[in-house]
């Protein structure tokens, strides 16, 4: 039986895991899911409709746990995605990579 990844056994002041300097395990997706979609949502003076941001509404949900981890795992397709990296890289190249990846995944689960 696995223990939940808790810091709650520590009480009081540090209930959100700040007793130690250890990096928190939460993945980027978990954080974004909360800081973007949830919380008190009221209009600020600076108005940016997050729903207009393609990265946030569509792509982020597909991104890997964290950028670092993704890089470690060799997943870096977004760095070639002009929408995500700001670089004008050819989509064809990315498509080819994705097709290769799909083939790989298909043969994996074959």
């Amino acid at each position: 039986m696995t223990e939940p990844t808790i810091s709650s056994r520590r009480a009081g002041m540090d209930r959100y895991g700040f007793a130690s300097a250890a990096p928190r395990p939460e993945g980027l997706a978990d954080i974004l899911e909360r800081v973007l979609d949830k919380g008190i949502i009221i209009a600020g003076d600076i108005r940016v409709n997050l729903l207009d941001i393609e990265l946030l509404t569509v792509k982020i949900r597909l991104l890997v746990v964290s950028v670092d981890k993704a890089m470690e795992m060799g997943i870096d397709w977004w760095t070639r995605d002009p929408m995500l990296s700001g670089d004008e890289q050819e989509l064809a190249d990315e498509n080819r990579k994705l097709r290769e990846r799909i083939k790989e995944l298909e043969s994996d689960s074959g």
Partner: peptide, 22 residues
């Protein structure tokens, strides 16, 4: 506003900002 529109499309910036916010 315009800076945010640009920065929010940049995953590195979004991650850094979201983690700091959190």
């Amino acid at each position: 506003e315009s800076a945010l529109r640009e920065n929010l499309e940049n995953l590195g910036w979004v991650e850094k900002t979201a983690r700091r916010h959190d």
